[in-house]
Design a protein around this nucleic acid. Structure first.
Lengths: 142, 142
DNA sequence: GGCATATCCTACAGTGGCTATAGATATGGA
DNA sequence: TCCATATCTATAGCCACTGTAGGATATGCC
């Protein structure tokens, strides 16, 4: 029987985060001691590891909920899991493209800065006037 | 005199977002009509454009606050603006590295999926067992 | 058994950067 | 004057946690 702290240490999760996952029903309600403390088994450890690893790969909690459901039903087709992973891959690729555009723009801003006073700072100039940008970056939240 | 809606249209911002910026004192309190509606001038339009452009480049609102302050004081040295931009560039580069690792891992997962049942789905296998990963991805929140 | 202390409990507030909603009021044109 | 559209305030919600306060419990040692 594992305490919540042990589970946290073994998976690199904060104790509050585990309780949060329980609250949103991503983790099951575990058994309790007579004093009311949570006690977990190996299955819960595996489930939490799955969640954390998926989070590290950038999956949303909703996507993870679907993936866990698929994982719990071995008879289901793998297609759905594949679809979710492909969607995540696309999102990562799109974010990378956006970041690449930002990187270019920021590098140019920084390079052109002469180091004088802010009255003729290239960094501020570019921020003031979008038309100075060579690359497009129309959406917020890279 | 510009209404909040005009300001929103001209900068690609939602009306609520402008009011939010006012609330957190990123935008100044504008003049009002006798009926209590906000009215803006060109200076506010420029300021909002600066904010939005900076957001598009991924600067945090706190960083933007600093940049605006520098922009308002032309006699100050440009060094600080340069420092903020360089920090932002570093962050973008770090995020790109993380995303590259994720992209690799996700692409591998997806490629290896044979399309059978979830009982032997590579996508789910990898999520279940971190040791199957070739690349490191230790932090959450790319 | 008693005690220290480490861990656990609940409940709630806060983070960033918005976005959405409800219900009331103002504005501008036909 | 009427009406559609825009605006107002206030508040709650989003995601995925994180932090805090103020207690209760569990464990190891003497």
């Amino acid at each position: 029987m594992l305490t919540i702290g042990t589970l946290a240490r073994r998976t690199g999760t904060k104790v509050q985060t585990i309780r949060y996952y329980e609250q949103i029903r991503l983790m099951p309600e575990p058994g309790r001691t007579s004093g009311g403390q949570r006690r977990y088994g190996e299955a819960e450890l595996d489930r939490l590891a799955f969640i954390r690893h998926s989070r590290q790969l950038g999956f949303s909690l909703e996507a993870i909920r679907e993936l866990l459901d698929l994982s719990d039903h071995p008879e289901k087709s793998c297609e759905e899991a594949d679809r979710i992973a492909r969607r995540q891959l696309r999102q990562v690729e799109q974010r990378m493209e956006r970041l690449e555009a930002l990187r270019t723009e920021l590098a140019r801003m920084v390079q052109e800065c002469s180091g004088g006073s802010t009255s003729d700072c290239r960094v501020l100039d570019v921020l003031r006037d979008h038309s100075e940008c060579l690359t497009a970056h129309d959406e917020i939240g890279a």
